[in-house]
Design a protein around this nucleic acid. Sequence first.
DNA 1: GTAGTATTTCATCGTCCAGTGAAATATGGC
DNA 2: GCCATATTTCACTGGACGATGAAATACTAC
Lengths: 199, 199
Amino acid sequence: MARTGRRPGGSDTRTEIVDAARAQFAEQGYDATSLRAIARAAAVDPALVHHYFAGKSALFAEVMQLPLDPATVLPAVLDVPLDELGRSLTRFFLGLWESPESGAQMLAWVRVGLGSEEATAQLRGFVTSEILARFAARLPDQSSAARRAALAATQLIGAAIGRYLIRAEALVALDLEEYVDAVSAVVQAHLTGPVAAPG
Amino acid sequence: MARTGRRPGGSDTRTEIVDAARAQFAEQGYDATSLRAIARAAAVDPALVHHYFAGKSALFAEVMQLPLDPATVLPAVLDVPLDELGRSLTRFFLGLWESPESGAQMLAWVRVGLGSEEATAQLRGFVTSEILARFAARLPDQSSAARRAALAATQLIGAAIGRYLIRAEALVALDLEEYVDAVSAVVQAHLTGPVAAPG
DNA sequence: GTAGTATTTCATCGTCCAGTGAAATATGGC
DNA sequence: GCCATATTTCACTGGACGATGAAATACTAC
């Protein structure tokens, strides 16, 4: 009766652990996810998780690798006529959520990133320097660019939360293109619309 | 040397515990917050927390009492001309976040509500039946009302997250009225604007 | 087929957690 | 001043957690 030792077959256990971890982080956030729970989900001994990853934070870092590097992908997304920018951004962003692989990762990012003050601080740093700065650079009037980019981002984040976290019926009922239509209209307004008359 | 026993002075310890708990939940979410951490923050023995509250979930329930009952407050907010509905909603909602007392509670709600799959499910139930249903009832065209209300809500949630959780510089820099202006314009568009041309 | 290596488990440590029950002390009514 | 009660702490239990080190087993190269 072999109770310990190597498992038979060319098992890719490491990948299984990463997948289980991503699912757990996406579902529970960082703190509430335990290595033991990940190990359970992967049907593996907890010590094995430590064998492959230095610790919880190392595993987390590996799991949270962005599906795409913004520096390489965003330029193409932003390279459209100014009046189509809202649609291009919205379609790209919501597309990330729609696909099964990157969707789970986006979910994990948001859950963890909004789950605690500390994590939110890191999310802020990344979002402002890697994402918003690139949005803003694409806009014509630099005096309002940072604000317009940030406002557009609020709508994008809200749209993702409504459809993929909260999963409100009225939003899930729409197919992706309808949703992109509805959201991109106001994203475009944030980016290039008239500034609301100040108080 | 009195190591145990009643503390001198008319201390309102129970309130201190509740306040400490709210702050912790707002900062860390539900799971990551421990009764012991709350007790530490309130400078009190952990057992005292149990004395006042049946357990973690009971304390949580008390802390999470909504600052306002939507059923009593929303009607007044919604009782404005249709073309001012966006502004009224936006001002009211962001106002909840801006004030110190209710702001901490809103923060706790969102952190806990988005922190795990399970909590999100409860948040969905509350938001759709208590909030969105009332928005929708106020709109003229019932065939699109649910969708319009939900879309408006995505922008409101996103706006709150951007300014009060992520605290993006470009958004925090605005004063409240400017922010309300910018957000309410697109909220209004979701509520009463033209439907984006399909496909 | 044997030596070496990668993979997996076991057993365990110390820490933190939620919760319980008894004891200690201040306060208020008399 | 004394007694009942509300408030607070101590000491403890059982369990889960992250982490470590040694042992056991399967695969690989020779």
